[in-house]
Design a binder for these strands. Structure first.
Lengths: 223, 223
DNA sequence: CCCCGCCCTTCAGCTTGCTGTCAGCAAACC
DNA sequence: GGTTTGCTGACAGCAAGCTGAAGGGCGGGG
């Protein structure tokens, strides 16, 4: 794949580039929005990896401009943990997915594949979970759709955010603190059982069997 | 792992050092940024544990300098609860993770493993044990996950603590007193057969073949 | 501009399941 | 066989987690 990486933290950028080169992708790198725009015009890339926090301008403007100009090049946002609001803005501006720094390089590969597959015209990869009594639950991360036993169910934004976090690390147990941080602005210290409440809501919609409680540690979805 | 700990609260620093030494890591300690810089230059560390609030200078400058010089050594920040801005600055300066004081020492271990793994790009190091009738048991220390014959099993915090201790010294026989000390805060004199009870509970979940009794001495896991 | 409905957060009371203890049984050793 | 050591089921106390209800905020529609 031809990949354009726009990132200013050098050590991270180089680690990403090396990892991708090792898997046979072609990678161009820059830390400047202006430069990135020129490169995008000149070269057809398969995926754009975009840090939103850049020295010479808002990365998000680049994305917005692209989309306004009709570009459909898939874009994955790279954000720091404390920039949740950026992440949301990014998705709204037309990003396809995001990764929170520091991220696992293998996870990056997986998301690149997923995004590329999505754009190649193949159907969206559905995540299948087993619900109560073996009922099937299908989650479409791309279109934010959930089917429970064939019937479409709507999730509110917070419910979705929570489910999304859990699905990103299937098999891993995430602490309430981690989940809370994902749902709220960094530093917005919430002192309540909000996470519990949303787990409860999700269970009502998806069935009890999907989200597993690990007492004293957090929550988990089967890997 | 070779770990450099930069922390000025002596009591905390010593607790962390003792905990890490117990799990076989090599730990160097200092409370000075200047000294830390010298040590970093002289020795290749696997992880840097960095308090941002130090007497002789801003810890964050150390981190920034490192990164500017091209170092990719993973760094975990230790901050007090009321220093959220420090935390954000730290992540932006290139830290990989953070812990809020006071933190659980086991949580520290987990983060260390996670960060080291992420950096190396390798998947989680799985510890494989043979259970009953040759059944496979896989333990993932980083994500606190246990697979018994392919099925994910949850352990309670005490069960995990006990298993963790035994796994850190495979092949060695640990006395009940040693294990008890590891399970409880020092001073908490437990006068019962708690360790036996937890061995029993672990055996129920993992199978009888994993933990071996050495009568009159203690318990052992095959090396 | 007001009303209405939806979503979010908080709280309180209830439920669940972890924990340490003990007692009785089993196994090992002499 | 007797003694010592280890194993495990039962149980009560308690902390963690669950969930129904209520109040507030925000946006859309009238």
């Amino acid at each position: 794949m031809r990949i354009l990486l726009v990132e200013d933290e050098r050590y991270l950028a180089e680690a990403v580039r090396d990892h991708l080169l090792a898997s046979g992708d072609a990678v161009d790198m820059t830390d400047s929005v202006v430069e990135a725009e020129i490169m995008l015009r000149g070269t057809p890339y398969d995926v754009l990896l975009l840090d939103l926090n850049l020295p010479d301008g808002k990365g998000i403007d680049l994305l917005r401009g692209m989309r306004r100009a009709g570009s459909v090049t898939p874009c994955i946002i790279l954000t720091a943990q404390d920039q949740i609001s950026d992440r949301i803005a990014g998705l709204n501006a037309g990003a396809d997915d995001y990764l929170v720094k520091p991220f696992d390089l293998n996870e990056l590969s997986a998301r690149l594949l997923a995004v590329a597959r999505r754009y190649s015209g193949n159907p969206n990869p559905l995540i299948r979970l087993s619900g109560d009594e073996g009922g099937a639950i299908e989650v479409d991360l791309a279109s934010r759709t959930v089917l429970v036993n064939g019937g479409q169910t709507d999730l509110t934004s917070r419910e979705w955010a929570l489910l999304d976090q859990l699905l990103r690390r299937p098999g891993a147990t995430l602490s309430k603190a981690q989940l809370e941080e994902a749902l709220y602005e960094f530093g917005a210290e919430i002192e309540s059982n909000t996470v519990e409440v949303y787990v409860s809501r999700l269970r009502r919609k998806l069935g009890k069997a999907v989200i597993h409680t690990v007492r004293g540690v957090g929550y988990r979805i089967e890997g």
